[in-house]
């Protein structure tokens, strides 16, 4: 704790006049996934991997890992000598309630198949998305996704805090707002809501408390919502 003498001694300036910045988002694309995947399958036997495409113009596809092998996959991604993804930038929780999607399916006898649209029910799940970058090699992002088996109140996922400490507070927030328990998290408590709070507010089916006692100028949908709220209040009182 001794005070060092010269104040300017410890500050180097990083002079890089020729490095005008590189776009870092091309390195870990689907193409390199084909090179990484065999290595990963050797390192972690039994891992299942799926590429989730992204149809936005800035398209960064994401990699879906099964929850049993998520922790080993994370260690692999961090310690692999080419990838060196040592920086977990963002941990997001997403709530996907049960939805019906339309899928084009080929049906009919062989030789006379037709494409038919079928509706399928996709069961709901909660998803945690990790954005990984590399500070050592200055590339990224690699988007990692892990999904829970359902949307109940006791769904759990392995915590990636042992791999990247930046997940510690963000996973606490996902637990607080979505209800996903993280196994082996060092300190899983609520982060933003108070301790006695019982709900998980960011879920799509969360009903906020009724503390909107009046609406100044209700009209259209707001009027409908206000009338429904009033009816609920009168029914319960």
């Amino acid at each position: 704790m001794a005070a060092t003498g010269d104040s300017a001694a410890g500050h180097r300036l990083n002079l890089d006049p020729n490095e005008f910045g590189t776009t870092s988002e091309s390195s870990a694309s689907v193409e390199t996934l084909e090179q990484i995947l065999p290595r990963m399958k050797v390192a972690i036997p039994g891992v299942t991997f799926e590429v989730v495409p992204n149809s936005a113009p800035g398209a960064e596809p994401s990699w879906l890992v099964d929850r049993e092998h998520a922790l080993s996959a994370a260690f692999f991604l961090r310690d692999d000598s080419t990838l060196r993804l040592d920086y977990c930038s963002n941990v997001t929780g997403v709530d996907w309630p049960e939805r019906t999607i339309k899928v084009k399916v080929r049906k009919g006898e062989p030789g006379a198949e037709k494409e038919v649209e079928e509706t399928r029910v996709v069961p709901g799940y909660l998803e945690v998305v990790y954005h990984l970058y590399s500070m050592a090699a200055k590339h990224g992002p690699v988007v990692l996704r892990v999904r829970t088996p359902g949307r109940g109140n006791d769904v759990s996922l392995p915590s990636l805090t042992p791999v990247w400490r930046s997940c510690e507070l963000q996973e606490r927030e996902v637990y607080d707002l979505f209800g996903v328990h993280f196994e082996n998290h060092p300190d899983l408590r609520r982060l933003l809501m108070w301790e006695g709070f019982k709900d998980h507010p960011m879920r799509k089916d969360y009903v906020p408390p009724d503390d909107y006692e009046y609406e100044p100028t209700p009209h259209d949908e707001i009027l409908e919502k206000a009338q429904a709220r009033l009816a609920r209040r009168e029914a319960s009182s």
């Binding site: 180097r12 990083n14 005008f20 910045g21 776009t23 200055k138």
Partner: peptide, 24 residues
């Protein structure tokens, strides 16, 4: 690791500037 250099978003690649680093 300064995103203005690493990601090069916006027009930052066109500007000359240094990134100060500390030692302690």
């Amino acid at each position: 690791y300064d995103l203005r250099k690493v990601d090069g978003y916006g027009l930052y690649p066109k500007f000359q500037f240094r990134v100060p680093l500390g030692d302690h």
